[in-house]
Amino acid sequence: MTGIDREFVGLPSPALGRAGAGGHPCQGIYYTPSGKKPKTAIIASHYNVDFSEHYMATRMAERGYGFLGWNTRFRGAEHFFTLDHALVEVGVGISWLREQGVEQVVLVGNSGGGSLMSAYHSQSREPNIRPAYGRAQVFEEALNLPTADLMIYLAAHPGRPEWITKTMDPSVTDETDPNSVDPELDMFHPDNGPSFTPEFVERYRAAQIERNHRLTAWCKEQIDAMSGGPARDRIFSMPRTWADLRYVDPTIDPSNRPTPLCYFGEPKHANYGVFGVGVMSTLRTWLNMFSLEESDCVAAKHLKRMDLPMLVVQPDGDMGVFPADAQGLFDGAVSTDKDLVTLKGDHYFVEPVDARDIVADTLADWLASRTVR
């Protein structure tokens, strides 16, 4: 088996200085075949998940590629996220790879990282992301980002606003009361399903969108009301974010996923718990990351600029990223060199036992004819 070298990388951010304790805001680990400097390297990053020890890192290094598991300063702190700053910090990692002699950079958008890396490529081609609500312009360094050469989507969903909307519970009647519920929109009420009728699905999806818009309006009202005061933002919580109908109804967007189940276990238990995406946020970050109206953390608009060779890999048993998501990424991209494959596995290909090696082989085979080594 090929030996692997690992190098810790800590770099400053154009947006934030080094911490007093010594840590750099941008950090990751670079994996390479032992003693070699690959000409092609992968970079994987996410909105808030630590990718420094990503499960593909050692596997791709064993197959001859560099792999930078890269974190912006928002790892573990998505409630402070701002897209333009994150894109700049992804660019810091790409610039570092170029300095190591890398000739071809491969963007890997895993899970939520799919829309993040889509936005990165789109912005590097032509600046287009909007300033965060209440700001006059985007961060200047986000107007001139280093470019990449190829794109891989790995169990990627279409974007934070779309994902959170389809998993937020529209039966919430009072955002300050996690037990408030409208029974006519409650997916867990036995009178409603599963299986769910087309009419219920339509009403449910419309109510989810309405909840997103309602939260957007409330965030704007709160920010505007703070104008002129010493406080410019505030933390708030959003209850019940594990309520996608697909968690319990396998007939909607069919796949080999187990039901009823979501990433945090039994859906109703998870939905009424305190863990999940978007459960805590600042007003400005919610608008910048989750709002259907305000956020550019989406893939759809950026896929119109996705002209890179592109591979979409979808797990057949994913409980939170579904076949329609993968097909949407594939169909939406303007690239003329694109492929979509579905492989056995869950969201992170933990199972079956050889799933991750099969993914690595699939990526390496696809890259082989498109890259230099």
Rank of each mutant, 00 (worst) to 15 (best):
C26R: 04
R98I: 09
S118N: 14
R73T: 11
L308D: 07
N71E: 02
L150R: 12
E175V: 09
D346S: 00
M117K: 07
G265Y: 02
M226Y: 10
G93Q: 08
I29N: 15
P352L: 00
P309R: 10
G278S: 07
P127E: 06
Y31W: 15
L287H: 07
L97R: 07
T40L: 06
Y47H: 09
A324G: 15
I129K: 01
E293S: 02
E78T: 12
P158N: 13
P146E: 04
E266I: 10
K268Q: 15
L311S: 03
Q314H: 09
S13Q: 07
N144G: 13
G3Y: 08
L308H: 08
Q104M: 03
Q222S: 12
I94Y: 06
L11M: 06
A299M: 09
Q208P: 02
G91C: 04
P239V: 02
N256Q: 10
V279Y: 12
L145M: 06
S13D: 05
L215C: 01
A136Y: 10
D361P: 01
H213C: 00
Y348Q: 06
G69F: 05
Y153H: 14
F81I: 03
A44L: 13
D182A: 03
A142W: 05
A217V: 00
D296Q: 03
R305G: 15
G113H: 05
A360R: 01
R98D: 04
P315W: 00
K304I: 14
T342S: 04
H85G: 11
R356W: 03
L287I: 05
F196G: 11
F80Q: 13
V108A: 08
E293V: 00
D307K: 03
Q222A: 15
R125C: 15
G20K: 08
A270I: 12
T173N: 13
E162W: 02
N71D: 08
D182R: 01
T72L: 04
M117V: 11
A156E: 03
V372Y: 11
S122Q: 09
P25A: 10
P183E: 13
S281L: 05
Y348W: 09
S45R: 01
P38I: 02
T2C: 10
P158S: 14
G23T: 07
L83I: 04
G20T: 06
G76W: 12
T167V: 15
V372P: 11
Y31D: 08
E202C: 08
M319A: 15
H79K: 11
S237L: 09
P258L: 04
E221A: 14
A77P: 07
V88W: 08
D249Y: 05
Y272Q: 14
G193W: 02
V312Q: 01
T2D: 06
M187K: 12
T176N: 15
P315Y: 00
D337P: 12
C219Q: 00
Y30H: 15
R284L: 15
L107M: 15
P267V: 07
P352H: 00
M187N: 12
H189W: 08
V108Q: 09
D149A: 04
I252L: 14
G93D: 12
F188G: 04
V105F: 02
L16N: 13
F139C: 13
K301W: 02
A368K: 14
R246C: 02
A364G: 06
